[in-house]
């Protein structure tokens, strides 16, 4: 059977939390009960969060094409954007981690046995700290699509996994960035766990010629907005 766009969740049939849609791996994992709302405790530990610094990141960590002795295969790209909170205030000095498949659609993970070549010059993991404006930037390779077992002929669209920390643990976010114009976006049950089209669109980067590096890499722009409360508002000065 071939899934069509109309068969994947739409806003009208949005699954409530705990109900599993077309992404089958959650069937025995998504909790069946609603989470308990915690409010009114300004001392909640989660309104604060871990901090990271110069010890955790080397400058080379943000360039995934220079982690081995040779150049990796594939289309070299630059991915950059800003991390902000719901008010648009920059999340400065925080950790951004990424991981991804190589240009052939294979992860450097022993359990990924997709019949595509590993690249000895590409691992696919990187990290950086956001600057004072909340900006991050990575140089990497455009990842390939790959098949997976969710349904007959299921292929994941090209994507980069992102892990983000805000000022508070409540703002923690792990997500995936997709590429514009990918025909697989219409068929992907993981992207479609987000049931609202406008929200799905926020996971798709934009091609940005301003970020392309001459004779070197294609540029993609992707901004990230962290949800969730924090105990202390950001210094208003930095939003000026």
């Amino acid at each position: 059977m071939t899934l069509t766009q109309g068969q994947i969740g739409t806003a009208e049939e949005a699954p409530a939390r705990g109900r599993v849609g077309p992404y089958r791996s959650g069937a025995l994992r998504e909790p069946s009960r609603a989470p308990v709302l915690v409010g009114g405790d300004p001392e909640a530990v989660e309104l604060y969060g871990p901090v990271f610094g110069v010890t955790e990141v080397t400058p080379l960590d943000a360039d995934l094409t220079r982690q081995h002795v040779g150049d990796p295969h594939g289309e070299r790209i630059t991915v950059s954007g800003r991390v902000v909170d719901r008010f648009g205030r920059p999340v400065a000095g925080q950790l951004v981690e990424i991981w991804q498949a190589n240009a052939s659609g294979r992860y450097a993970h022993r359990r990924d046995q997709h019949a595509a070549p590993l690249d000895p010059h590409f691992t696919g993991a990187g990290r950086c700290l956001t600057d004072a404006e909340g900006r991050y930037a990575f140089t990497t390779i455009k990842p390939g699509a790959y098949p997976w077992g969710n349904h007959e002929n299921a292929w994941r669209p090209a994507h980069i996994h992102f892990s983000l920390f805000g000022r508070a643990f409540t703002q923690r976010l792990v997500t995936q960035m997709y590429f514009p114009g990918d025909p697989l976006l219409a068929y992907d049950p993981i992207l479609h766990t987000v049931t609202d089209q406008a929200a799905r669109d926020r996971l798709v980067a934009a091609y940005d010629p301003e970020l392309s590096v001459r004779n070197w890499s294609l540029g993609y722009h992707w901004d990230i907005v962290l949800d969730g409360p924090a105990a202390t508002p950001a210094d208003p000065e930095v939003t000026a």
């Binding site: 008010f87 992860y107 359990r111 696919g124 996994h161 997500t175």
Partner: peptide, 17 residues
């Protein structure tokens, strides 16, 4: 600003996180 949605961590984070 509308928040960026979450997506699963997937099975292959083990060499990165």
């Amino acid at each position: 600003f509308d928040p960026t949605p979450s997506q699963t961590v997937g099975p292959f984070y083990g060499y990165a996180l």
